[in-house]
Write a protein that binds this DNA or RNA. Structure first.
Lengths: 153, 153
DNA sequence: TTTCATGCAAATGATTTGCACTGTA
DNA sequence: TACAGTGCAAATCATTTGCATGAAA
């Protein structure tokens, strides 16, 4: 986790001014675990900045992304935002639509890294970052389905 | 690659009728290598069905996806469609926006499979399919950038 | 004084939806 | 005859853009 000082420095690479609004947005996203949508970020930040608008959120998310601090994850309906830039795996439940990081043990990390190495070894593709999503049913929805509570998929 | 017969059977799981239009769309996507957008599919199918509309394309892509024949890949501006349901890696160029499958050697396949096994071993998440994207610069754009032809990224 | 972030409103554009029409089971 | 797929038009909605205002360098 970055200190606020480091965060400000990173943001200055792409934004001339780092305002309290931007800091608040950055902190909401960087401290999140649930890959929030723009709406969710908006709701969380609005507590501190009632005048906050979506345009400002989008603008700041753009800055954070260009600073390499977060990653946009486009989904079918809308994007979510990922503060974990380390190689890892996302588990996406197709039923409840929650997105969580898979157990971040070092060997999952290492496997993604070596997959990346293996791919770059044999192509001149210059990889900057990656997105690894596994889609399926989370334990809760999986159980609900077994109990017949879910419509057929 | 599926025979047309097998394709029809798979589609019948989710669509009562498999029309010539639907077959044409299915074949365009399933035979594609470039992860086409809806617009691209539209243009390719329109050669054979001048009356084709986007609504029909979207509808058919939904059927193909529910049949497990293709995968929708949402990107920032629009979705692309992936006919390769095998575990593999996509290389996404952030400059020219082309998307290609990484060299489909068996060990890349195996690495994705064991990553998947490793993740499911220690969680009750029921994985159905996966998306593995590496973002960066393709060889062509990478070279252009070194020659200074690209705006700073 | 110049620049840049904010907030608001309007625009954009991919995707979805409603509905009439038509061919097929 | 009933129904599912097609085609067209209209609606939806996330995201982007333009612009006036205000604060910071």
């Amino acid at each position: 986790m970055l200190t606020q000082q480091e965060l400000v420095e990173r943001m200055r690479e792409w934004a001339v001014r780092v305002t309290p609004q931007r800091l608040a947005i950055a902190e909401v996203v960087l401290n999140s675990q649930d890959h929030p949508t723009v709406q969710q970020i908006y709701e969380r930040v609005r507590d501190h900045f009632p005048s906050m608008t979506l345009a400002t959120i989008y603008s700041t998310l753009g800055v954070l992304q260009k600073s390499g601090l977060i990653q946009e994850l486009p989904f079918q309906r809308q994007s979510r935002y990922e503060p974990n830039m380390e190689p890892h795996v996302n588990l996406v439940c197709i039923e409840c639509e929650n997105v969580i990081d898979a157990d971040t043990s070092s060997d999952v990390h290492d496997m993604v890294v070596s997959l990346r190495n293996s791919v770059t070894e044999r192509s001149d593709f210059e990889v900057g970052w990656q997105r690894v999503d596994f889609y399926g049913l989370c334990p809760r929805c999986s159980a609900a389905k077994r109990r017949g509570e879910l419509a057929e998929v």
